[in-house]
């Protein structure tokens, strides 16, 4: 596994893992820092191409305006939905106390 200094650091990976609520061991941090560096190197290969005159692509498929009509469709049965919840109160999902505030 080669190191890719400057592309992504171990600290970057630890930061993103924390944001994603992933608990990584030291070994895993090393492993993913290396793997992510390889992926970024690949992206850098694309960036090194001469892309003058090539429009940015938003999606792998060259399609736009995929829309549906504003027509209601039946959803899920509420009892079935709430049966999947760990805890239910007043037909709502009961979740542990939230310390922060919604963004």
């Amino acid at each position: 596994m080669t190191e890719h200094p400057g592309r992504i650091t171990r600290e970057d990976v630890a930061h993103v893992a924390r944001l994603a609520r992933l608990r990584l061991t030291d070994d895993e941090l090393d492993l993913y820092t290396g793997q992510l560096g390889v992926i970024l190197d690949h992206a850098a290969d694309v960036a090194s191409l001469d892309l003058d005159g090539v429009a940015p692509t938003a999606h792998a498929m060259a399609v736009t305006n995929v829309l549906r009509s504003d027509t209601p469709r039946p959803g899920l049965d509420r009892d079935e939905v709430l049966a999947a919840a760990p805890e239910v109160e007043q037909h709502r999902f009961r979740v542990p106390r939230i310390l922060g505030e919604a963004p």
Partner: peptide
């Protein structure tokens, strides 16, 4: 939210 024991969610 501060001091809440738990929260209920309606989607």
């Amino acid at each position: 939210i501060h001091g809440a024991d738990y929260s209920l969610v309606d989607y």
